[in-house]
């Protein structure tokens, strides 16, 4: 268990031995600012097993209010697994076991009694590959409000759909074809539609799993702008393989390596002055 204390210069001095590799360590002490004041989401000692294989080792990490937290690291390091712990999407994977404490606004969610449906209405998710439902644009956005009973009369639903599309910056492009199939949109538009779909139920947290990896640079830029806008209202965690993207959109960055959380830091600091050797290697492209 890591001592919970705000990072300070004093504590930083204690990390004299730089972590070079995690292979020989059972437990890796995370370095940096993994905790924040009044966290939106706080994770303590989260471990994940897929069957016999352990995928995450004792992760301690907070998501602050109105912040974008970037999760970086080489493929298979557990970023996505960690992300999926927060809305319990790991429940859908057979043989997956999540241990530890995960609290949203102080309420424990990693517990069999916790209601997954209401959790997922509070924690939206955007996937790597745009996955609009094969229905109309309108029905895609309206699906969440409908199943959560957020909409009353029809015109209210219209308003919700319009607001969500406007927030996602898609309204102007699709307002005249709301009832055409969503699968007819371009990849970037589909991804923004998925973001609009996620925010239509008014969540508190949005999890993004490499949302731009299937998009071209222009569409990526639009999504990044959007993420920056959304920060005003939501807490966002984004998994990305692009160091530049992490640097552009996030306030804090967490570096995962082989299931361990190696380092968490304020993004600017982390990219200019990583404290762990592993982080430095990854960021500078020597590894990963």
């Amino acid at each position: 268990m890591i001592e919970i204390s705000p990072p300070s210069k004093k504590s930083e001095k204690n990390f004299t031995t730089r972590l070079e590799s995690v292979d020989e360590f059972d437990r890796v002490e995370t370095v940096g600012e993994m905790f924040v004041d009044r966290p939106k989401v706080s994770c303590l000692g989260v471990s994940v097993h897929y069957g016999d294989k352990q995928a995450l080792f004792n992760i301690n990490l907070d998501l602050g209010r109105n912040e974008v937290l970037a999760l970086i690291g080489p493929s298979g390091c557990g970023k996505t697994t960690f992300l999926r712990c927060i809305n319990r999407m790991n429940d859908t994977i057979e043989g997956c076991r999540v241990d530890g404490e995960i609290k949203i606004e102080g309420a424990e969610i990693n517990h069999s009694d916790a209601d997954v449906v209401s959790l997922r209405s509070k924690v939206g998710m955007v996937f790597q590959k745009p996955n609009p439902f094969p229905k109309s644009i309108f029905d895609n956005i309206a699906y969440g409000p409908r199943i959560h009973g957020l909409s009353g009369p029809k015109n209210e639903l219209d308003d919700i759909v319009e607001a969500a599309l406007k927030r996602a910056g898609l309204w102007e492009e699709v307002s005249d074809r709301l009832h055409t199939p969503a699968t007819g949109l371009s990849g970037g538009q589909q991804q923004r539609l998925c973001i609009a779909r996620a925010i239509a139920v008014n969540p508190e947290v949005i999890l993004m799993d490499e949302p731009c990896s299937a998009l071209d640079p222009i569409a990526t830029a639009r999504i990044e702008e959007l993420i920056d806008d959304l920060r005003e209202k939501f807490t966002i965690a984004i998994v990305t393989h692009s160091m530049h993207q992490a640097a552009r959109v996030s306030q804090r960055t967490a570096y995962f390596h082989m299931g361990h959380l190696v380092e968490v830091g304020v993004t600017d600091q982390m990219f200019t002055n990583p404290r762990q050797r592993l982080t430095e290697d990854y960021i500078t492209g020597r590894f990963g």
Binding site: V117, R120, G124, F127, N131, P132, Y143, I147, H148, A198
Partner: peptide, 20 residues
């Protein structure tokens, strides 16, 4: 991905099956 999308929207497994 359709199942994931629906589940992540907070649809119950039954809703996911019958709606999508």
């Amino acid at each position: 991905s359709i199942r994931d999308g629906a589940l992540a929207m907070g649809a119950s497994p039954m809703q996911t099956i019958f709606h999508h």
